[in-house]
């Protein structure tokens, strides 16, 4: 299936829920939807177009808001579903109902960006240690890591 056909199918099925759809380079499609329509968009491309394989979820900090990118692939094309999330209320619903393999990526997003994933089957931290401070989300732009000054034990 070529890109144009995919774009028309998506437009037909999702209608005005498609906020933006672009095809900047061969085999790459960027689709923007509202976060409330995320699950619907995913199940559409899964059932109508056969995009079953979620490659990963990328989180982006755009300083005033967050953005999540869900990368899907079939045997040739990649659809990147873009979702904007406000910084004040960082909540997104889980997609594990449609794509069970998304669980680790969602947990990673929770750890790294502090975006709360609603109804996630397993909300425990995945990567950050158990004694990680509340509210420290390493991949947010305002989180800075400062390497402490090194002292050599026993040295001067």
């Amino acid at each position: 299936m070529n890109e144009e056909k995919i774009i028309t199918t998506i437009k037909e099925n999702l209608k005005d829920k498609v906020l933006e759809i672009t095809n900047p380079s061969p085999r790459r499609i960027f689709l923007k939807v509202d976060k409330n329509n995320l699950c619907e968009a995913i199940s559409t491309i899964k059932e109508k177009l056969g995009f079953t394989y979620l490659i990963t979820i990328t989180g982006l900090d755009k300083t005033d808001s967050f953005e999540l990118l869900y990368h899907f692939a079939d045997d040739t094309n990649v659809i990147n579903i873009r979702v904007a999330i406000s910084r004040e209320n960082p909540i997104v619903s889980t997609v594990t109902g449609v794509i069970p393999g998304a669980i680790l990526y969602e947990r990673e997003i929770q750890d790294m960006f502090g975006i709360k994933v609603e109804n996630i089957p397993d909300p425990r931290p995945l990567i950050t240690p158990d004694d990680w401070p509340e509210g420290a989300y390493p991949l947010r732009k305002d989180w800075k890591y400062e390497r402490p000054g090194e002292t050599i034990p026993g040295g001067k």
Binding site: M112, T128, P129, D131, P133, P138, L139, R147, E150, T151
Partner: peptide, 14 residues
């Protein structure tokens, strides 16, 4: 992702 697991106060101590 995160460099050097740091302590609760955000600093690694020797």
């Amino acid at each position: 992702m995160v460099e050097l697991v740091n302590d609760k106060n955000g600093e690694a101590n020797i």
